[in-house]
Structures are given as structure tokens and as C-alpha cells.
Nucleic acid binder design. Structure first.
Lengths: 292, 292
DNA sequence: GGATTCGCATAAGCGATGCTGATGCTCGTG
DNA sequence: CACGAGCATCAGCATCGCTTATGCGAATCC
């Protein structure tokens, strides 16, 4: 009697869905195609439900359900291994994952001894720390003042806020609202926005502000905040950035809803060493809302 | 190359630690003792670290680390199976898990068609829903007004607040503070409290109130709020209860910190049926702070 | 519209895994 | 110091899951 879903099957399932093909998944995982075929069959037999349609290869309803579990599950599995491994690991090159807007002058100064800096979205940054690929992460995103970012739960991680900063709306020169002293987001819900999912995802903004609008004007797929600001200044759509990252355009403070840009430090339990030093440096200063 | 920790080994490991013995764990799991021995050895070989001390059988530091992951991991594994199973399950006896203080007159009325009602702490209630053993849960606990309870993440569950109620301190008649119109928790940190972990855990209260005190007078291990109130009224220690549950003693509203008793409905995605009906009944009324 | 090809399913074979029962060994106990 | 409880080890064997080879159905192409 199999009570526990086999994670190998789960991983194969995820890969098949991602690749959209049994054979491609087999290649990627280093199996042969029949092995994948059998694994999927085994998983479906175990759960008693078809998980994939073949030709085209797509998840069924049940398969989509399973997918929602599979990601976090596989992450935690890697996290467990990484967490135990940290116990007996000696010093190694220090890797930090940071959100695109997480590095201010203050935080950058604290990163002494860091070998590699990797830019990653909030969820990805947490995953990197949990799985041991990064030692620390500085996740960033919009949040209500002194509220935590809703970071995904990937195991016993320490999460502390390290910075909060005022958000400003970036407008092009001459925009009708450019003269205002402050703006309400509701008034801008119908305007066109620059959707920069790797800088300041509109979805998250909508969730935090409890808003439905924010139509997309131009989409920017890079993660340089300066580019987002320039696009906004050039009139391709509005954008919302922490004051210090809005390097051009007309910057008008956001009045309502009360949302700030928050940076949180994420790390596992660390043995004494350079990583722990950086954590201390980052957390020694009290969390303060630094304007501009 | 094993990249993924084998959940069977994890389950065995958890059981061995819980039982404090290889042979007892073997019994419990339906294995023989050598099987357990080999599984633990395999897990230790896989992770490259000793996880248990033998004689006495106790987790090492690394083992404790692994334990923190194991629980949530195994829960999610069961949750994944349950979630997929729900897709193809036809109606069955409706089971609801509820916190000891979650059932007011209003919520009780909404539970039509429910076969079994089970009292469980917040974390346990979530686990029951995730693993499919319960269809719905009403988790309860102290929280800042309109802040969510910090329920553990056990997968894609829907969590909505359904009630918030004022908290009162229960004092014995004639207590020096019994005449007050309201009380601050800081002033009571040094008093003796009734620790009723299954009704209103002091730990959670300390966490929410950011307080260190609250000395334990008497410990009550049942989950009847009326008993907790009676113990407080009899002078065995103070207690904090939602106004409607404080059936005796002198009841003084809590003024600071601003904490309310919150009830949240937890459920997975439900196919239409009696369970979905109950959810609708519970969520149709707007969340309102009902005094007394 | 028939031939072709791409891609998943099935079959047979075989090595590896992981269980059981028997036995050895070691630490804690009286 | 001797005993016993309890974990480790060993040999044997069933099962599982991978590989190679092949079957088969559905799109595609001319």
C-alpha cells in the first residue's frame, strides 16, 4: 500500500508538463522515454485519476491540482537536504540573491565578503535560500507599512524586515497629474501602466492595493529599475517605484492606499562565518523608512 | 544519484524519534526492526550526517533540523493526494474541525449537514483539512484586528476570516482590578495566568502581544472554555477569552494591545455539494466584530 | 487519401533495491 | 561482572523500475 506520493514521479510529472512532451522530459531528466511513460502511468494508477491528456500533452483538472502541490513539495525536499548539509559545510563562496530594488546604498555596503550577487524575484529568492543555492536573500516588494511581504513558506527560514521606503508614481513631464503633491492609486487604475514583472509586478500591486485595474501599456521584461523609470518618463505608461530608484521622470508620492516598498532579509539558521556576519551587518541597523 | 530525499525514510525517521526506539517504530510502521535500522542508515548515508544517537535514541543537531522539515513535508504529501482525490470523490459524511472557541451561535447555525465535528487546535485543524480528513475547519485564535491568524502553509487552501470578537480578561470577584472598565495586558504580565493550551495558548498570546511575561498559575489541559472561565473566576489565574465564552467571573475588556479573537474558515477547493453549501452559509454574512 | 513520421504505449529482460529471518554485538543495568 | 534489551549485520529472495526493442495511433505531407 503506497501511502506517500513518490517525489520522483512528481518531478517527472512536473517536467513533462513543463516540456509538454514525454520524450523531451525523458531527455531532460536523463531517462528513456518508456521510463517516463511508466512513471506517469504509475502516478496515475497510484492516485487513481488521469493526470495528463496525451496528444496534446496537457494536465487534466486533477493534474493541475497536483501541479500546485508539486512545486512547493519538491522545493521543501531540496530545502531539507540543504538545511542538513549546512550543518557540516565549511565556508564556501558566499552567494546572495537580491530583488531588483533591494539594493540601496546601505544594504550594498553591508555585503562584504559576498562573492556572487544574483537578481531574483521574491519567490525565487526564497527558493534559492531554501535549497541552499544562495546563503542569503534580500527579497523586496510592495506591502502595507510594517506588514511582512507574503513570502512563500519553504521551511524554517528566518525572515526580518530590513528596510521600508516611500513609493512614488513616475509620470512623464507634462502629464496632467504631474503637478500634484500626491496621488491616490484608485485615480490611476484606469491609466496605462508599465508592466515590469521582474521589477515591480502589477499583480502583486493589485493584490496589496486590493485593486482590479492597472491596465498594461508596455511590458518590460528586464530587471533594471532605471529602465522602468525611463519608460515611464517617456510616456509608455506609469510605474510605481521606491523613491530612490525613480531616477527620472516626474515623481509624485503615493498617498493612498498606504503602501511602502519593503525589503526583507531571508536566511536559514547559519553557522558562524561570513554569511552570519553579513546578516548581522544588515540587521544591526533598525528598520527605518528612509525617504528618498 | 539520489537528489530527492525519500519520504519513506523521512516517515520512518520521524516515527523513530517519536517512539524513541527503532523496534517500537518498526512495530508501529509494520516493518521489522532491521528494516528500520537499514532505512535510518540509508537516510544518514544519503545526507552524509548522523541523524540519531543510539542508546539512547535521540536526534542529533542535524536530525532536529531534518525533523523541522519532515512534518510539513509529509503533511503536504498527504495533502497532494487528498487534493487530487477530492476531484473524483462523491459526497460523503461531512466532517468539520473547529477550534474550541470557534463555535458561536452564528457559526453553529451554518453547519447544516455536518456529520462530525472535531475540536482541534489551529495547526491541527489546517492539517486535517489539507490531508482530507476534514472538509472544513474553523480555526481560531488571538490576532490584531483584521489581521489574519498566522496559519501554517499546507498547500493551496482558501482561508477567509468569518468572525472577530472582543477579548475580555476574566478575573475572580473581588480582585483588585475587578472594578476597572478596561485593562492593559502589560499591567497583567506579572500576574498568574491559567495556561489552557487547547483553549487559548499563552505562547500565541505572547507572540501576538509581543510580551514576555504571563506567568503560569494553573494549567488546564481540556478544551472547554467554560472550565477555563470557572478556573479564572475561582482565582487560579487570569484568563483571556472572547466575551461570549467568558461565562462567569468578572469580565473586563482588553484595551491594549489591540487584540481580538478571530475565527477563520479553512477549506480546499470544493466541488459543489454539502460542504460548499456550508462554506457559502459561513461566508455570506460579512465579517463583523460582534460584541458579547 | 494513402504513405510517412512523430510520439506515446507495451513487452521482455535484468540489475538494483529493500524487505525478511537469523544472528552477532554492544551498551546500560542490577 | 553477568545478563538482557536493543541496534547492527548478513544472507537470501521477491519486487520494482530501468533499458532496449517493438507496437500502434494520430497528425502531416504530397
Amino acid at each position: 500500500m503506497l501511502m506517500l506520493v513518490d517525489p520522483h514521479l512528481l518531478r517527472t510529472f512536473v517536467t513533462v508538463v513543463a516540456e509538454g512532451s514525454f520524450s523531451a522530459a525523458a531527455d531532460r531528466l536523463g531517462y528513456t522515454q518508456p521510463a517516463v511513460s511508466q512513471q506517469i502511468a504509475a502516478l496515475e494508477a497510484d492516485l487513481g485519476v488521469p493526470l495528463l491528456t496525451r496528444r496534446p500533452v496537457r494536465p487534466t483538472r486533477a493534474g493541475e491540482r497536483l501541479l500546485e502541490h508539486a512545486g512547493p513539495l519538491l522545493l521543501r525536499l531540496r530545502a531539507a537536504r540543504a538545511d542538513v548539509a549546512r550543518m557540516s559545510a565549511r565556508p564556501r563562496p558566499l552567494t546572495v540573491a537580491a530583488g531588483p530594488l533591494a539594493l540601496s546604498a546601505g544594504t550594498a555596503a553591508a555585503l562584504s565578503g559576498v562573492t556572487t550577487l544574483r537578481i531574483a524575484g521574491a519567490a525565487e529568492a526564497v527558493a534559492l535560500v531554501a535549497s541552499g543555492e544562495a546563503d542569503l536573500a534580500l527579497a523586496d516588494g510592495p506591502a502595507a507599512p510594517s506588514d511582512p511581504l507574503g513570502l512563500p513558506d519553504a521551511g524554517p527560514l528566518t525572515i526580518v524586515g530590513v528596510r521600508e521606503e516611500e513609493l512614488v508614481v513616475v509620470l512623464p513631464e507634462g502629464h496632467p497629474l504631474a503637478g500634484r503633491a500626491g496621488l491616490r492609486l484608485d485615480d490611476l487604475a484606469d491609466a496605462l501602466w508599465v508592466d515590469a514583472p521582474e521589477v515591480m509586478p502589477l499583480d502583486r500591486l493589485r493584490a496589496v492595493a486590493r485593486l482590479d485595474g492597472l491596465r498594461t501599456g508596455m511590458r518590460y521584461e528586464g530587471h533594471d529599475p532605471a529602465v522602468a523609470a525611463r519608460l515611464a518618463a517617456a510616456g509608455h505608461g506609469l510605474t510605481l517605484l521606491p523613491a530612490s530608484a525613480a531616477v527620472c521622470g516626474v515623481r509624485v508620492p503615493l498617498l493612498a492606499p498606504r503602501i511602502v516598498h519593503r525589503v526583507e532579509l531571508v536566511h536559514a539558521a547559519l553557522p558562524p562565518g561570513p554569511a552570519a556576519e553579513v546578516v548581522r551587518a544588515l540587521t544591526s541597523a533598525p528598520l527605518s523608512a528612509s525617504a528618498s
